[in-house]
Design a protein around this nucleic acid. Structure first.
Length: 348
DNA sequence: AATACGGGGCA
DNA sequence: TGCCCAGTATT
């Protein structure tokens, strides 16, 4: 058994570094409960740099719980469009309605945990950052930092296993007097210094406590077995009629729920499929989709599929589409309006 | 306990 | 191209 990390010295080094190194993120420079909640939802599985423009636009459109609660779901999804993991947007919308209906928002991690879209990480983040509750957050950054501090080569096939593995250590190291600052400092360290590739160990404020860093092997931790990507080919249909485009809305349980996309060929078995207009790639978790968009003609009688609907051109910008389909629809719309120009509508 | 869920960024 | 990112809900 190795010597435990001396928690007081560790906290002092970490918090001293964080005070001078923290990025001036908008939810830090102008903090509030609502802004913290929105930032945590947006940052789930999404890099901060990607979140920033969405966060700014979101705050313009939905400045507080009440305005978000009052919005239509389609409007909410449209604002989230391009961020991915759209269940986050639907859950955040439901959460806003729940909070708006309360006398006062919850103030403990356990209460927040019961709200939609709030798991162990987000409950701990909100409770510690906003309400000063002494609960540690264990996200991807923290797992990486702790695995390197202890040079722990345990393989973690899932993040859940890693969270359980490090729960005790995370609690022991947490600064109970400044849990919000401490938690953000750990994540900031993982995001800016203790990064996955080529960590900056020479600049690390806790390098004297780090077993992996001192032996020059930080990049070897944590050990995460990888999963192969599966390739899938799909044909989607471009069907225009009377200035409207035929789109399909995501199913009740499937992915891209309540977002619109170009309909799959299987959705319209009777359609007459014509020329190939465009092929594009998109990744969804461990699937790599290649989608081939063909011009097509609708069958004389449309199937009674309630997920299908004709969307007039002028309404396309106000409905939620998936990110790739937004780009493809815009380009193809311009292309067909130009009478099918010769040039490539999708310059790389 | 495993699996599904998006899309962008980077080496 | 493959891997990662301030995770959660569902089966």
């Amino acid at each position: 058994m190795r010597d435990p990390i001396p928690a007081p010295a560790f906290r002092e080094s970490l918090l001293g570094w964080y005070a001078g190194a923290r990025r001036p993120l908008p939810w830090r420079t102008q903090p509030s409960l609502y802004r913290t909640v929105v930032s945590e939802f947006m940052c789930q599985q999404t890099q901060v740099a990607t979140v920033l423009p969405y966060f700014a636009e979101w705050m313009e459109q939905f400045p507080d719980f009440a305005s978000l609660a009052a919005a239509e779901e389609a409007t909410v999804l449209r604002a989230w469009e391009g961020l991915g993991y759209y269940s986050r947007a639907r859950n955040l919308h439901r959460l806003a309605k729940a909070v708006a209906a309360m006398d006062a928002p919850p103030a403990t991690a356990a209460e927040w945990r019961a709200l939609p879209g709030i798991g162990p990480y987000t409950a701990a983040a909100i409770a510690s950052i906003v309400f000063g509750e002494a609960v540690p957050v264990i996200d991807g950054n923290v797992i990486r930092v702790l695995a390197r501090l202890t040079a722990d080569a345990t393989p973690f096939p899932t993040a859940q296993k890693a969270q359980r593995h490090f729960e005790r250590l995370a609690r022991d190291l947490l600064d109970a007097h400044a849990p919000g600052e401490y938690n953000q400092a750990m994540m900031e360290l993982g995001a800016t210094v203790c990064v996955k590739h080529r960590p900056a160990c020479l600049l690390c404020p806790v390098r004297t406590h780090c077993l992996a860093g001192q032996s020059g092997r930080a990049a070897d931790f944590p050990v995460v077995p990888r999963r192969a990507q599966e390739k899938v080919e799909q044909v989607r249909l471009w069907i225009e009629e009377d200035g409207a485009l035929l789109l399909a809305r995501g199913g009740a349980n499937g992915r891209l729920q309540s977002l619109y996309e170009l309909p799959l060929r299987e959705t319209l078995p009777q359609a007459v499929v014509g020329e190939l207009l465009f092929s594009g790639k998109r990744a969804i978790t461990h699937h790599l989709y290649t989608e081939h968009i063909h011009r097509a003609k609708a069958p004389a009688e449309l199937t009674e599929n309630p997920a299908l609907s004709w969307v007039p051109h002028e309404e396309l910008e106000s409905i939620p589409l998936s990110g790739p389909h937004r780009r493809w629809v815009r380009a193809l719309l311009k292309e067909t309006a130009d009478g099918r120009a010769e040039r490539d509508p999708f310059p790389s």
